[in-house]
């Protein structure tokens, strides 16, 4: 039981650290984007986003692009959390939980691929 508890604590710590890092980065990008947007408003095209253009615009200090980038980081955070837990389960030799978390990650990635192809 003690070993199991130790494993649970470690898994919780990993998950917590990934989530905390994700929200810090995304909050920083969103706050910077909103401030730049208010200070120096620039036109922004509507419709389907092209991520190459968004990254270039964000690097050039475009507020809307930075805000969108922050949202993208926030959306990616749970994906990274699941991937991190896969690693934690593998490290703790929790094979059944590793299979389950790998299935979740697989489903998420399948969803991503289907969005890209449609």
């Amino acid at each position: 039981m003690a070993r199991l508890d130790g494993g649970r604590r470690e898994e919780g710590r990993f998950a917590g650290a990934v989530l905390a890092a994700g929200i810090r980065v995304s909050a920083l990008l969103m706050a910077a984007g909103l401030l730049l947007r208010a200070w120096r408003p620039q036109p922004w095209p509507q419709g389907v986003p092209h991520w190459g253009a968004i990254l270039r615009s964000a690097a050039g200090g475009h507020g809307e692009a930075l805000a969108l980038l922050g949202i993208a980081v926030l959306i990616a955070t749970p994906y990274v959390r699941v991937a991190t837990l896969c690693a934690a389960f593998a490290r703790g030799r929790q094979w059944r939980l590793l299979a389950v978390s790998a299935a979740v990650l697989g489903l998420l990635l399948a969803g991503l691929l289907s969005v890209q192809s449609s």
């Binding site: 995304s26 909050a27 969103m30 706050a31 984007g33 909103l34 947007r37 922004w44 509507q46 419709g47 389907v48 986003p49 507020g63 809307e64 805000a67 969108l68 922050g70 949202i71 993208a72 926030l74 959306i75 969005v115 890209q116």
Partner: peptide
């Protein structure tokens, strides 16, 4: 997000 349906500034403001 992929279909451009996320209102960037609105969502970012609310999220903060």
């Amino acid at each position: 997000l992929a279909v451009g349906a996320v209102p960037g500034a609105l969502a970012a403001t609310v999220c903060l």
